[in-house]
Design a protein around this nucleic acid. Structure first.
Lengths: 353, 353
DNA sequence: CTGTTAGCGCGTTCAA
DNA sequence: TTGAACGCGCTAACAG
């Protein structure tokens, strides 16, 4: 069923049908009604591809995430998509997994579909991808990356704010040996999280033992391995902060296996605040990085680029703050007297050698 | 950058460029090489929309799920998408949420994009949606629904198999009062799960008290509410089976709040076996419904319809079996002597009034 | 306010 | 084996 067909049946020109569909106000209401009636009757749906071809705009945004299987991302996809239906954009989703060839594939797909913008939310270093996209003149949104290119926009994420709260919270509870389980180093976000942790530890004079810095990969399995290693240490930590919530869940799971009770024997702090965090047993204390806010900013940045192509707004228009969410996976360090919390004020002094 | 442009620069006709790109073997290798070189140089990407328009096939499959935020679905999306890249199909994702207007929207989007098929994995009753799609001649895949229409294919899911195992497992552990927390009744899958539970209870002569049948909505919050209600009962259950894992997680979470230890005080069984289930504390015993298998079958059915349009293979080509996965959220009923498990053979008798 | 017409970028005949 | 030409379904000029 095509425009032509509708035009013929409604006894008008194709132009009139087109105008009617696009709700151009200069159409005679009588004709419009006639056209709509035919459209209803025959069940006509305009062909997006033809529209895109002639208009030069696809009304599609690309969204690239590393994987959908990590609970951090569905929330983002959801929000991004919702905004899509609100503003009449389709979203073309791509995953990277660990496969580099998929990256090329994703880029090709996006370009061939002539997307009006791409949000790259992989938290890695996707310079190559960005280059290809920009060369094709497609607006890009990316996390934490400054670029002179007007086609690329970005947000800054303030990891330190939340992590500082976490570290100080643990210190206040009397924890002196605090471990950190990191993620895959090839992720920009991971090195930033780790750096923030180290910085915050230094700030308050807490010692950092290399043994307490474990490399993970942001999976639950990694969390399990990590806590096993940590528990085997002669001088084991009383608290562990994880580079993401999945890792923290793994830690909790394996702690159960090791008969370590959380938070009595071990305090655990996650990162991200995925929705699941509050449903863990015990509920997970974690640093919130709002997935909704991120998706929202990404979408609006793209919308901006798409609707006002000449808009030269610089990157880092916004910054996203992270914040500690206190729940019940942290407690006083073992061996500490369970006194009033005003004791926490002595932590700093007592933490020094 | 267009085909024409490439043709001009390579000093060949557009037809030759087209043939080269589509790897039609009758092209002179010399010319082909020349064309490829130009394509590389200028960074040319063919326009999918133009291709679709002229070829009449979009190489896009639609995938409709209720929401991506429920961990059951990302796994499906992942598998489906992976198959997509393997077979060179794009996937157009849609969520329904609870909004009915989104359903119309999803259908419209799919049709306007001229998708080559749609997998509807919402587990509800989407007859209206299917009708619209079929009327537009788009092949459809749907769960558990027989249809004479050759355009719609389907799988059957055998819920009873796994649920029977679950019920019998609990019975064998000496549980006499087994509760069931259900999901939203508007989901076909939910009524089937519940029916299977009731049937299996009857089979072995276990009593079913209406008080022990709780209505939920497949969220963690619902699980929490449910167990609170159950725990307040004068004669409370010693085991609860949930219509999905999310509900079970909620149950476990709230049991913690109520100081009910799992599985000592309460046995919990989930349904779906989302990946998270094994990482719960304690690891959740659940009935597996393979998300990968489902996605795989859906994709292949669509592929079949798309590549061999005249293929008249009936629905229910396959059936997916469900299976109990034993983990550690179930144990002997409280008050039961912890004897050898051969005692379970008496359950049946003792369960009768 | 409406109709005619020229492409948008590509695949695919049909001749050569 | 290659090229010229047509048309996929639609929007946007322009003319009426």
């Amino acid at each position: 069923m095509t425009l032509q067909e509708i035009a013929k049946r409604a006894k008008v020109s194709t132009a009139t049908v087109s105008r009617t569909i696009n709700r151009i106000p200069t159409v005679d209401p009588v004709l419009a009604r006639r056209v709509w009636r035919v459209i209803e009757q025959v069940g006509y749906y305009p062909n997006s591809h033809a529209r895109t071809l002639v208009s030069g705009r696809s009304r599609i945004f690309g969204l690239i995430v590393p994987e959908i299987t990590n609970p951090f991302f569905p929330e983002i996809v959801q929000t991004f998509t919702e905004l899509g239906v609100k503003y009449q954009y389709e979203v073309l989703l791509s995953f990277l997994a660990q496969d580099t060839s998929l990256l090329e594939n994703a880029a090709r797909q996006m370009i061939e579909r002539r997307v009006d913008g791409v949000a790259i939310l992989t938290f890695g270093r996707e310079d190559a991808l960005i280059d290809v996209l920009v060369r094709q003149n497609v607006p890009v949104f990316v996390v934490d990356m400054e670029s002179p290119e007007p086609l690329v926009k970005s947000v800054h994420i303030d990891y330190e704010h939340g992590i500082r709260q976490a570290v100080q919270h643990l210190a206040a509870l009397g924890h002196l040996r605090i471990a950190f389980v990191s993620g895959p180093e090839h992720l920009k976000t991971v090195v930033q999280r780790k750096a923030a942790f180290l910085e915050c530890m230094r700030e308050i004079g807490l010692p950092i033992s290399p043994q307490l810095l474990i490399d993970g990969d942001h999976t639950m399995a990694a969390g399990m391995t990590a806590i096993s290693a940590l528990a085997a240490l002669p001088d084991r930590p009383s608290a562990v902060v994880c580079s993401n919530d999945l890792t923290a869940i793994g830690v909790m799971r394996q702690a159960f296996e090791l008969a370590l009770e959380i938070p009595r024997d071990l305090s655990v702090v996650g990162f991200d605040d995925i929705r699941l965090a509050q449903f863990m047993v015990p509920p997970l204390t974690t640093v919130q990085l709002s997935q909704i806010e991120l998706a929202d900013i990404a979408f609006r940045a793209l919308l901006d680029s798409a609707e006002a192509p000449c808009n030269r707004s610089s990157c880092y228009e916004y910054t996203i703050k992270t914040n500690l969410v206190l729940r019940r996976s942290t407690a006083l360090a073992p061996g500490r007297l369970r006194q009033s919390s005003c004791e926490s004020q002595n932590i700093r002094a007592s933490a020094r050698p």
